[in-house]
Design a protein around this nucleic acid. Structure first.
Lengths: 122, 122
DNA sequence: CTGCATCCCAGCCGATACTG
DNA sequence: CAGTATCGGCTGGGATGCAG
C-alpha cells in the first residue's frame, strides 16, 4: 500500500537517490538521533553532537529543513534563540537512523578486531 | 545484555564513530543492500549499483572487508572471478541499511515537495 | 547566540589507462 | 574480468572573522 515500485535507489537517475545521499550520512544520523527526544536549540545541538563545527551543523540543518525533516523555530529575543525539531516526516526517520548509531556502538569491538586482523595481513 | 554503555557515537573521540562514518554512507547502503540476497561478483555488483565507478566500488568493498562486513572469494580462473558476500556481522547490518533505501523510495515525493516549497521561499 | 562569508585543505569520487 | 595507478575536479568540512 505504501509501495512505490517506480522508485529505485539503485537506479542512478532516480531522485530517491538524492534523498538517500542526504540521510545516509554520519552528521545527519547524529543530528536526527539527537533531536529524537524533542526540540533543541542550536547551541545545545552543537554540544550534544560533540565535535561538529558550526558550519557543518548549519549546513546539515539547512538541508534537513529543505527536505522537510526538520523545522526551525526562531524566537524574537536578545540574545537570539533558535530551536530545531523533527517534523512528522523526520520522526519516521528517527528509528532507522538511531539504529545505525546503535549498531556502531554495539559492534565496535568486532569491527576493531576485524580491522586489526585485516591490517596485520597487509 | 548486548549493551555497551561505554561507547557513544555522539562523543567525538569514541571509536564507534569511525564505524558509523563508514556505514552511514550512500555507497555502503547500496552495496550492502545489493548483497542481501547472496553473493555477487564484482561486475554484477557494478551493474546492480547503477552509476558506481570501478574505483569507488573497489574502495567501498575494501573498507567493508576491513571492517569485517564483507568477505571476498577469489576463484583461480581465466578470466578471473571474484565474489563478494556479507559476513554474519554484515548481515546484521543489512536490514538497517535497507531501511534507509526503502525510506528514501517511499518518501521521495514528500521530500521533493518540501524542496520545492523551501526553494520557492528563498 | 545564531549563522553567514570567506578561505583553504583533505578526502571523495570520476575518468582514463594499464596489468595479470 | 578484476583490479591498480594516476590525475584532476568537486565537495565536505574545519577555522576564523563579522553581522544581526
Amino acid at each position: 500500500m505504501t509501495e512505490h515500485p517506480e522508485f529505485n535507489v539503485l537506479t542512478a537517475t532516480c531522485p530517491s537517490r538524492t534523498s538517500l545521499a542526504r540521510i545516509a550520512n554520519k552528521w545527519t544520523a547524529m543530528v536526527v538521533s539527537a533531536l529524537g527526544d524533542g526540540r533543541l536549540r542550536f547551541s545545545d545541538l552543537r554540544t550534544t553532537v560533540d565535535g561538529i563545527s558550526g558550519k557543518v551543523l548549519t549546513d546539515t540543518l539547512r538541508e534537513l529543513e529543505r527536505d522537510g525533516l526538520v523545522s526551525r523555530h526562531v524566537f524574537a529575543e536578545v540574545p537570539p534563540r533558535v530551536e530545531y525539531e523533527l517534523t512528522p516526516l523526520g520522526h519516521t526517520l528517527h528509528a532507522p537512523l538511531r539504529a545505525l548509531g546503535d549498531w556502531a556502538e554495539q559492534h565496535i569491538e568486532e569491527v576493531l578486531t576485524a580491522r586489526e586482523t585485516f591490517d596485520k595481513r597487509r
